[in-house]
Amino acid sequence: MSGKKEVIQLKKVAKHYHLGENIVRALDGIDILINEGEFVSIMGPSGSGKSTAMNLVGSLDAPTHGKIFLDKKDISKFSESDLAQLRGKKIGFIFQQFNLINNLTARENIALPMMFQGASESERLKKADELLKMVDLGDRGSHYPNQLSGGQQQRVAIARSLANDPEVILADEPTGNLDTKTGQIIVSFLENLHKKGKTIVMVTHDPALAQKYSDVVYWLRDGKVEKITKKRRK
């Protein structure tokens, strides 16, 4: 992968939590490198630190030690507002629980991230409609999340993650709340986005899923990178 642009890099990143008198080392000095256009999975059993890693990769949280680079810029010391602006522009999130806003329609949910980036209303709604069509939900724009199935909600979440045309899509257990067939559809959407050049970072506990689609898999255990597997895709 040499010669590719580095999008996200974690250098000796640690995240420690204080639990009473004890220190929990959720991550203990990990290095992760995500290049442009790669499909990267972060794998590991429960408690391995993969969710913490995802929060750091997605600039949702700040490390206790180490540095995080986004487009070669050290963001470890960025203010919360700068981080919000940055992730709104550069990173799209897909969550296991879908995390749509229940009081907004599918179209409004998709348009919302664009509002925070200052896009005009007409731009937002036009883009939202395009993205709805892209996830095959062109006729569901005015539906509220509770009027959609789990798979449909996750497709709305995918559309929302693409609203600001981010470089990186960060998916945290995107199939965790879906049946196998629906999960397959969701992963194929991610695969398509990857083929279109998007950088995908997926957190999963499913080794088969990770190995099938990923260029690079980071295997975490007890807050450390246990191994890294790379695959040349067919």
């Binding site: 949702l60 919360e80 919000a84 709104g88 522009k89 995390n99 991230p113 925070f116 980036q117």
Partner: peptide
């Protein structure tokens, strides 16, 4: 509480 987290995750600043 959770919704506020979602809004922040998708780019809402504290001021927003």
């Amino acid at each position: 509480y959770k919704e506020i987290g979602i809004l922040k995750a998708i780019g809402a600043k504290n001021s927003e």
